[in-house]
Amino acid sequence: MRFALTDDQLALGSVVNDVCAQLFADGAVREARDDGGALRAKAWSTLVELDLVGLLVPEELGGAGGSVTDACVVAEVLGKHLAPVPYVGTAIAAAAMLRYAGPEQDALSGLARGEAFSVLLGRHLEEPAAEAQVAFDWTDGARGVLLDPDGRVRVVDLPGTTLLDDIDPLHPLGRIRPVPAIGALEDGARRARAIAWTGAAALLTGLAAGALDQAVEYARQREQYGRPIGSFQAVQHLCADMLVDVETSRSIVHGASWTVQHAPVEEAERVASAAKSHAGAAAVRTCESAIQVLGGIGVTLEHDAHLRLRTAHLHQAAFGGADAPLLLLAARALERT
């Protein structure tokens, strides 16, 4: 048993970190809100070139044949930098469905080449009960990935999709013409859902880590009453709680990233549920606290603190709502006897 990330995974994280630092320098993400998708497209093609989009696609299909842990390492760094790319939606959630509920080989190859895919969800971002209505993290021209009423993964074209006016401009939602679709029932689809939850949790962990960094840096510099605000215990304790949220999220995400790929599906679901619900709540709390530490500047349009909070809420709700993992865990706990 070895819990730590490998040296390769640490190196992967630091490469992605460097790439993001370049791509998103000087508040580029804030401007991405109304650049017509230019930064998103540029960042995505960089990730495709680096073989990171096809990380979960097997090598024989043109992917990088990486592990879920690798993908989570990437997602966490992207979250920290608030990268406006559909990494969780496409490179993790859609890829996992195409692979584990399929495989849909052609689509997987296309995904690794950078073709756009969007997981289709219900209008509350839940798993569809009978019909999908929303394309998650929509890119123009994307094809939709869903489970058809027989439980098979299917790829559909989405003509006539329009943008919804929702909370997160960095990860748009598409309003699609309703398509028949259901939630995960078979083992493969259930595993894919567990992977999607874990991927979202990894991104959420990164969002929280970035918020913590911002808050701590600010708390060290900003002075009031003649001293740094970081010397006030009330501010210190906010930051300490953020740290606990970040570190514990990291622990469960790393553990889940291995479990969802290698453990029996029941265990995969249980641990992924814990990852998604814990990291989701932790990220929202942490992004809220960061705004508190920043004071007035934290609630301005020009600061990116609100963008973090937006992306955190969206990913906490994605693939089943914030409740689904909690209800799954509660049901499993009550079955324990």
Partner: peptide
Amino acid sequence: LRALGEAAASLEVLRMHCLRTLSD
């Protein structure tokens, strides 16, 4: 149920966090 789910989640988090601490 949601609160129970949170408690169960926190136990899973603790389990993984302990593995990480021991590993470290």
